[in-house]
Simulated scan of single mutants.
Amino acid sequence: SDYSADDYNESNEDGLSEPCSFSNSNSVNGVVGPYIHSIICILGLVGNSLVILTYALYKRTKSMTDVYLLNVAIADLLFVLALPFIVYNELYSWPMGQVACKLLRGSYSVNLYSGMLMLACISTDRYIAIVQARRSFRLRSLSHSRIICALIWIFALLVSVPTFHFYHWYEPSHNDIVWFNGTEEEETTDPQYVCDWKFDDSNTARIVKVAVPSTQLAIGFFLPLLIMIFCYTAVIITLQKARNVQRQKAVRVVMVVVLVFIACHLPYNLALLYDTVSYFEHRDCHAESSLRTAMSVLQTIAYLHCCLNPLLYAFIRVKFRNHFRRIFQDLCCVGKKNITPR
């Protein structure tokens, strides 16, 4: 099956199914794609590059949190580098061939899983450091964190195998047919290749189209969310017992981290859950168009989180901000040396 049956819902006078236009969804994608995603790409690129640069040149990874933060920044950076190509693929035909198609969609999936699971690891590390303080010296070691990160990347790669396998570069068969005054006519324009799901039979299509988003929901959202809620709730309870100003600031930071995560990811994942559960139910063109438009907007809000991670996890730390200032001071010094005549 090269295309979704949902694209062909309305019937003409002869009882034949005509394709849905999705004009509202396309117009929203036309605005969201080029402009808002460009802002996300720039902010994500700058923020995550600064985090990686700081760890590479100024600050050694001395704790488990440092290792996790570095890996989150790498996952987010790879994600924002792939995002312009994903947006282009959704708006236009895909000109870059089969290998680039598989690498693009597969890397997107790997970075999504690894980034979200790393955030869960950061919350677990903070839980051990604050709630299980007596055991923290034994549990929180650099070697453990590096092994955990390596396992997460391998696991994310394994979970993304169906995406690598079933995404193909091809010319959809329904591209050859256009509708004109209720009748089919052959299209004479150049072939439009897409980078999209492609299956050999309908049974495989049904299984994968439900299994992949279900896995994304379970492992890429609900599992990290539950871990974060459990760990940060225990952290807040422990910090509340110590009545001092510094601990109260820490509680506020934890609350902001959790609320931002939920605000960014929960709406889109609820929409994805609804889409997955009702996948085999008939939806008319208007309902399908409304759902696509909503998911496009909510997905963009979820993408914003990769820009906010550096602010929430790295720049909020005093030592990290000091290293961050040093980067700009050194850049200014280099610039002055190049500009000042010898």
Rank of each mutant, 00 (worst) to 15 (best):
M118V: 04
I36W: 09
F199C: 03
V178E: 11
L16Y: 02
S11K: 08
L78Y: 11
I154L: 13
I74D: 06
E13Y: 07
N48M: 09
I177Q: 02
V257N: 15
F280E: 05
R342D: 04
P84H: 01
L272N: 14
Y8L: 02
L311R: 04
L81R: 02
C41E: 13
Q216P: 13
I122Q: 11
L259V: 15
T65A: 07
R326E: 15
N9A: 07
P267G: 09
V251S: 10
Q240S: 12
N338I: 01
D76I: 00
A234C: 14
S93W: 04
S141Y: 11
D125Y: 14
A82N: 06
D275P: 13
N89Y: 06
Q299K: 09
L16S: 08
W94R: 04
G33T: 00
L312Q: 06
T61F: 06
L142E: 05
A234E: 12
D76R: 04
V31R: 08
L57S: 10
M255Y: 15
G115W: 05
L308I: 01
D200S: 11
T215L: 12
Y55K: 05
V159C: 05
Q329S: 09
L43R: 07
F315H: 04
Q248D: 13
H144S: 15
R252F: 15
I207Y: 14
V254D: 11
N309T: 03
G97C: 08
R126V: 11
K209I: 10
W197C: 01
V99Q: 05
V46A: 10
S25D: 03
I42R: 02
A82R: 01
H174S: 06
P267C: 07
E187W: 14
R146H: 08
Y170H: 00
S63H: 02
Y274F: 15
L112I: 13
N48Y: 06
A133F: 09
P172N: 00
P310S: 00
S23E: 07
A242Q: 14
G220L: 00
C306R: 00
Q329A: 03
A82W: 01
P19H: 00
H174T: 06
K209P: 11
T188A: 08
K59C: 02
Y167K: 03
T65E: 09
V110A: 06
G220C: 00
A211V: 06
L311I: 00
R292G: 12
R135E: 15
T233L: 07
L142A: 05
S123V: 07
S202M: 13
L259Q: 15
L223D: 00
Y92K: 11
T188E: 11
Y313W: 14
D76C: 14
L308N: 09
G47Y: 00
M96C: 14
K198F: 04
F166M: 04
S49L: 09
S1L: 01
